[in-house]
Amino acid sequence: MSVDQATVRRVAKLARIKLKEENVARLEGELNSILHWIEQLNEVDVTGVEPMTSVVSVKMKMRKDLVTDGSYPGEVVANAPAKEDDYFLVPKVIE
C-alpha cells in the first residue's frame, strides 16, 4: 500500500498538523519509503495468532474507587499558555 498526496493531506488533517504545501511531496516520499519497508510483514503467516495485548502475563490491577488526589486547581492550570482564574482559556468554540 502506498499513500498519494491527497492521503498525506488527509492524514495531516487527522493528526492536527498544519502542512506547508511545499512539504507535501517530501512527506509523500518519506512515508512511502517507510510503508514499503514495513510491507515485508505480509510474508508472515499470522493465521490463528492472537494479537499481543500485554508483554507480561499479569492480571490488570484494580484499585479502590476512591478520590485520592486533587483539590489543587491552581497547580493544574499552572502551565497553561492562557488562563483566567482556574480555567484554561481557548478561542471561542460556540457562537
Binding site: R16, K18, L19, K20, A80, P81, P91, K92
Partner: peptide
C-alpha cells in the same frame, strides 16, 4: 491548551494545527 507552546489561529482547530506544526 493546557501546557506548552501555543500558536494562535483563526479558530480552535487552526490553533491546534499551528501549535503542533
Amino acid at each position: 491548551v493546557r501546557y506548552g507552546l501555543r500558536v494562535p489561529g483563526n479558530d480552535i482547530v487552526d490553533m491546534y494545527e499551528n501549535s503542533r506544526a
